[in-house]
Amino acid sequence: MNVIPKQRFVQKYHLKALGGLLLFILLIWWSARVTEVDFGLFFVNFDQFLALLQKMSHPDWQYLSLVIAPLVETIKMALIGTSIGTLLAIPFSVLAARNIINNDFARGLIRLILNLIRTLPDLMLAALFVAIVGIGSLAGVLTLAVFSFGMIAKLFYEAIETIDDGPLEALQAAGATKMQMIHFAVLPQVFNHFISYFLYTFEINVRASTVLGYLGAGGIGVYLQRSLSQFAYDQTAVIILGILAVVLVIDGISNTLRERLL
């Protein structure tokens, strides 16, 4: 006769998972307390929001012709920034991957540097680069490059760590050097993820560069800030719709590419 082995009490009632859930709920409650989130306020002042929406509901289409050039500039900034960041991130992501670099210390050091770079807020970076290279799109490009570098390096090394290690072993057993193993066994397995993450970061950068404009780092953000400070919400609406269109196009391209590649 088959006897089902007894589970331990903790396993049987999923105590670990339940404990985790409870802790999570407590954390949310505590966060809400500390930050004094008051949802009531949101509904009380809801008419303010509606008034703004109403002003924005009549976009000033004449403004569109003025907005196109800075929109294109924003896309260019994002493209160059993301590309520079990606190129720099590739070697770092390889060095940070557990299945490539066995040395805990070396890998830990690289990851520490990556964490440090990701910790720098992009607004601070923008302020820094505006101070160094002056107002204009170069500051924006440099900011986006550093920001993309930190983000892509992390996404890339996590992708590298999910690959099938079998081919690595096979090539090592065939007498390959580390570089040959990376080229022949790692890159083909992660290439599509790399493309996909590149496009994802590119999209984020298009949106991020609107904020950078506030600090004089070029692009559409300069116009967004101007329209908002002049309370010209009909113009703001045009800018936002323009950015939406760009983001939709990038998203469409990235989806098609990903489907075709994966």
């Binding site: 079998g166 096979a170 057993a173 007498g175 022949f184 083909p188 397995q189």
Partner: peptide, 15 residues
């Protein structure tokens, strides 16, 4: 290693 070929249970090709 170059002078020793190895065959694996899971083939270990780059798919």
């Amino acid at each position: 290693r170059r002078s020793i070929g190895m065959i694996f249970q899971n083939f270990n090709l780059v798919k």
